[in-house]
Design a protein around this nucleic acid. Structure first.
Lengths: 210, 210
DNA sequence: CTCCAGATTGACTGGTCAGTCAACCGCCTG
DNA sequence: CAGGCGGTTGACTGACCAGTCAATCTGGAG
């Protein structure tokens, strides 16, 4: 007989999903654990059956998603593509993540990624791993001569990632239009902006033969 | 007789400066008002003589600095310079702000600029004014043909500002080296990265005569 | 010297909320 | 049917802390 018959509803998952809603709409510091429990339709105490603390809920949400992103970056890096297309794919992945589930990305960006005195510091290793993997990709671009050697790869990675995160921030704050077409368009535009630059290229010597 | 003889010490200023230290090192949500009072060497109640609430202190800190930045952007825009040099000056101004007083910028970036559910939302107008002014500068670049017309100015402004803020974030988290030389170097590098792009330019037709 | 207004003090209060815990439930096992 | 165990409940507690306020100080004006 099947072990699960009447879909025993994963309460832990229910709580995590509810937490995303609540954290996104009210903010981690401005909501109560009871808000999460209510949203999940679950008793207050059950939250503490599955999680040690309110913070652990956010940690879990962050790690779940960030690991997926790190995995995606590695997978993209492993493909046999020009560096620019790898960057396009990464931008695309992050933007898709936002468009498919804005709340999770909002919570991560708003509550974790910049929280230098709390969650950000706690997850610094994971966060910088993303920058490092992007930097590694850029480094291959420097090596094959397609990317400028004058801009350090780790520096370039920060610029690239920063631009993307700022776009998400723009969407989160409602400063940029949020439509599927805009999301799609943005992928190409960030890539072009960061790789190709905002300026029209002046007469420039071609890349030195690496 | 002079109105001030023994340097009456502006207690309000003292509190604001103490708040910068405390907010930067412990975080707005993880510190007590009494921490600020202690740091300022002032009685707890005096904080409430000068400010209505803990939040008002942060609001004041943000507005003081942000207005200076808006002013600086306008002043830079008014100069007769190529667009790229205006952007260099803006990047330079923001980076100098950080290098001269890291704590204020840290507090603004960590506690305000991304706080979509609290301070960020409250100051959305001011925040987006900065993006708008940068976008206006970029628009002139599009008009005079030095900047690509395919990338909307508001979009480009987000990329530019995002890259800079990410650099500050890198310094705040200790992921990028914090030396005066690095700060100086970064000004040129971000400008080159964003305006000129990370890639070596391929053969590209010159800007169409606008 | 007196009087006043504004500055300064810090003990206290009121409300909030994260986390605990003892009880209860429902299902499976023997 | 008894026993037990993980899942589930929600009232309760203990700590914490933003904000209040009555009292005190200080320095200038008359």
């Amino acid at each position: 007989m099947a072990t699960a018959r009447v879909a025993p509803v994963d309460k832990r998952r229910l709580i995590l999903d509810a937490a995303v809603n609540v954290f996104a709409s009210r903010g981690f510091h401005h909501c109560r654990v009871s808000d999460v429990a209510d949203e999940a339709g679950v008793a207050y105490g059950l939250v503490y059956h599955y999680f040690d603390s309110k913070e652990e809920i956010l940690n879990t949400l962050f790690l779940e998603r960030w690991d997926v992103m790190l995995e995606a970056i590695s997978e993209i890096d492993a493909r046999d593509l020009p560096v620019r297309e790898k960057l396009y794919s990464i931008a695309g992945f992050i933007i898709d993540s936002y468009s498919h589930n804005p709340d999770v990305m909002k919570v991560i960006i708003v509550e974790v990624t910049r929280a230098a005195n709390s969650f950000g510091a706690a997850h610094l290793g994971k966060i910088s791993e993303a920058y490092d993997r992007i930097a590694a990709i850029l480094e291959t671009g420097r090596e094959d001569g397609s990317f400028k050697s004058g801009i350090p790869a780790d520096f370039a990675a920060m610029c690239f990632y920063g631009a993307i995160e700022q776009l998400l921030t723009g969407w989160i704050f409602g400063l940029l239009p949020r439509t599927d077409e805009e999301f799609e368009r943005a992928k190409g535009l960030v890539t072009e902006a960061i790789c190709g630059g905002l300026e029209h290229a002046p007469a420039e010597p071609p890349a030195p033969s690496a």
